[in-house]
Design a protein around this nucleic acid. Structure first.
Lengths: 199, 199
DNA sequence: AGGTTATTTAATAGGGCTATTAAATGTCAA
DNA sequence: TTGACATTTAATAGCCCTATTAAATAACCT
């Protein structure tokens, strides 16, 4: 039942965020009494943090555990951008939850910092930075930074999923059309970034 | 006092969204009794919609009221991207509010559709589309669509401001550094898009 | 001033929420 | 079987919230 509560809470939190999800709803979805939620997690805040931390860790790990370290820079970059995109596609509501919580609740920032500092292996990032610097020296890539590239990647990929309600709502397109658009963006976002770093 | 309530509500809604803002807080910030909020707007929902509609209208109008219709395509695009960026810089919390409300409350989508259909002049967009098609025929721009370009622009510009809590929180940088980063992104986002449409 | 309307306040109904508590039920080993 | 412990439930305290109502105050017109 503890697992059922976690699963129900995860779904609801991802759907509606912390503030709009009540422990009563979580209990109903998990199929138990509302007091049980508090028996296992004492507070709604605890329950949320457990899920939030787990999700962020999963997300960051998926990004930094890279098995393409031997690829040349452009290929590696393409691989990373698409890996990032794919994690988002499997967790389309996660970026919104993260943005939402970090924006409305300063407390969450500490949690995020902790995870980033203690749980994430940054060596792959360093490796990419080194490859990039090499390319710049060779003149095959214009002078730029991994920070800039990462910003562009995050922006383009995340917005694809965060903007879904706007896109689907305003253009009212079918689910098939949306899937097609997703596939298109997966290619397009890579293309934009690769072109943007040309000398 | 009605204006004071509107102003207070706008600030609080932008800060914390609809659900996390109470009419009591609004009243306190406006310097009046909480019942007065309901006297003027009957419901919190009404008050929110008034503000939300006004903000979206302002935002969309700033984007589509373009005075650079005689510029060549690339110059016009650069102008638009920076205009978009500047509206966001003046309303840094607006995109988050829009995303937040459209994501958590389907009702808002109707409001948005209404505004887009009735209040926004789409001729400048058509004009840009025509210029783009011309460039593509000439071969000076790779085959693409205004939709793709707009997505990239929105993603890059919006993320600059939406991600502020993450960037400032994780990297803990000073306000000056942040301002510098903003200025950098204003250039960079243009550069990325212009490079991304090269043949 | 006196009357009418607009504005503002105090008080409160009514509802949902989190968290706690005490009691009931299940589990399982000795 | 019984005792100890884990799980689950019902009930409720205590908050904060929205919205309403009735009464008080201000503003304005004649």
């Amino acid at each position: 039942m503890e697992q059922a509560i976690l699963a129900a809470a995860e779904e609801l939190f991802l759907d509606r965020g912390f503030a709009l999800t009540s422990t009563v709803e979580i209990a109903k979805k998990a199929g138990c009494n509302q007091a049980l939620v508090h028996y296992y997690f004492r507070t709604k805040e605890n329950l949320f943090q457990a899920i939030f931390a787990r999700k962020i860790k999963m997300f960051m790990t998926a990004l930094t555990s890279m098995d393409q370290l031997d690829l040349p820079f452009e290929k590696a970059l393409e691989y990373i951008i698409q890996a990032h995109f794919d994690v988002l596609a499997s967790n389309p509501r996660l970026p919104f939850l993260i943005l939402n919580e970090l924006t409305t609740n300063p407390k969450r920032i500490e949690a995020l910092k902790d995870i980033l500092q203690n749980e994430i292996d940054l060596r792959p990032v360093m490796h990419m930075q080194a490859l990039l610097d090499q390319e710049i020296r060779k003149g095959t890539v214009r002078p730029t930074t991994m920070m800039d590239i990462a910003m562009a990647m995050a922006a383009l990929n995340v917005m694809t999923f965060v903007a879904r309600p706007i896109i689907c709502g305003v253009l009212d397109i079918s689910d098939d059309d949306y899937q097609e658009m997703i596939a298109h963006r997966r290619q397009e976002n890579v293309a934009i970034i690769l072109r943007s770093i040309r000398p």
